[in-house]
């Protein structure tokens, strides 16, 4: 038993300071991404969420060029990108795919330029790798409070918006009828999405941060139909993927003779992907064992109510 645990958790795991920072930052961004992600998935905005990751790629590489910390660029340009996407009509169902795609394409172009300049003008090596695929073990511990603060801000934003957001997710018309400023809710939600994406860019890299945003949320939404549960479940799955991923990456140092550890982001993404794959059969199993109670009630025709609509007349 003791041997198994020791085999699983390499000695020095807990005492290593980069590991502790990684666990805090990873955990924080996993929870924020999961909570925001549930709404992203329900609103069908996965593509917009993913486009924000590419926007923050450009932000991260631009910040590096200016000598600022990547997080400034990740979050800053992410919020700008959120504004641009809203302005050119990402919210409309028709054509939003296209508007998102154009923002995405343009920011990739910018990222290409910034990364090129990063690698030529400054002596930084590994900028491409660091921005795109993350470098959670090399984050300075002073960044942790900033990450926790921004994470809390995103969670508070979602908390404040919770009910109008839910209503406008279910039916935008209903929300408008109730006097919810639907557009404003959408903009603030996109900002929350940009924050979540910016944070997870630090953890698993900009172009992979989609995984933390979409994966745990999509799995959770499949498994439960109650929104509160799905938020908790998504956070749990995100945390699990993140922490186990960090552990495995730490362990992988000893897996091959050359002592080259595999990237954390790979483990996290792979875990999330397998959670999502497993959630399908799991949900079907549950549905089967629940019987047909979860089925929607039969047509209203048979309901003995006073209104018998089919009819006609008058």
């Amino acid at each position: 038993m003791g041997f198994g645990l020791r085999w699983l958790i390499e000695p020095g795991f807990w005492s290593s300071s980069p590991v502790r920072v990684a666990l805090v930052i990873g955990g924080c961004s996993a929870v924020v991404s999961a909570v925001v992600g549930v709404f992203t998935v329900l609103r069908g905005q996965s593509f917009a969420g993913h486009a924000l990751t590419d926007v923050s790629t450009a932000g991260g590489s631009g910040a590096l060029l200016l000598g600022a910390g990547p997080i400034v660029g990740f979050v800053g340009l992410g919020i700008v990108g959120a504004g641009v996407m809203d302005a050119i009509g990402v919210r409309r169902l028709r054509g939003r795919d296209l508007a998102t795609g154009v923002v995405l394409g343009a920011s990739i172009g910018l990222a290409a330029l910034f990364l090129y300049l990063d690698s030529t003008s400054r002596a930084t090596t590994g900028a491409t790798q660091q921005i795109l695929f993350g470098s959670i073990f090399s984050i300075q511990s002073s960044t942790a409070p900033v990450v926790v603060g921004l994470g809390l801000a995103a969670l508070v934003l979602v908390g404040v918006l919770y009910r109008p957001l839910l209503l406008s997710t279910v039916g935008p018309e209903m929300a408008v009828a109730r006097g919810v400023p639907e557009r404003l809710v959408g903009v603030f939600f996109t900002v929350a999405m940009a924050l979540a994406v910016g944070l997870s860019s630090l953890t698993i890299g900009a172009i992979l941060s989609t995984a933390l945003l979409i994966g745990p949320a999509a799995a959770a939404v499949r498994l439960t139909s109650r929104i509160g549960w799905s938020l908790l479940l998504a956070s749990g799955l995100g945390l699990a993927a993140c922490w186990i991923g960090v552990l495995l990456a730490y362990d992988s140092y000893d897996w091959n003779a050359s002592h080259r550890s595999l990237p954390v982001s790979f483990f996290i993404v792979a875990l999330i992907f397998s959670f999502y794959l497993a959630s399908g059969p799991a949900a079907r199993l549950r549905a089967r064992s629940d019987g047909r109670r979860a089925q929607p009630p039969p047509t209203q025709v048979s309901a003995p109510g006073p209104a018998l609509n089919p009819s006609p007349g008058g």
């Binding site: 996965s46 992979l208 999509a218 790979f266 993404v269 999502y276």
Partner: peptide, 17 residues
Amino acid sequence: DVATALALVMMLAAGAV
């Protein structure tokens, strides 16, 4: 869209490895 997003990041992560 979810399937697309997840397939996308999985392939990217594999590529990085």
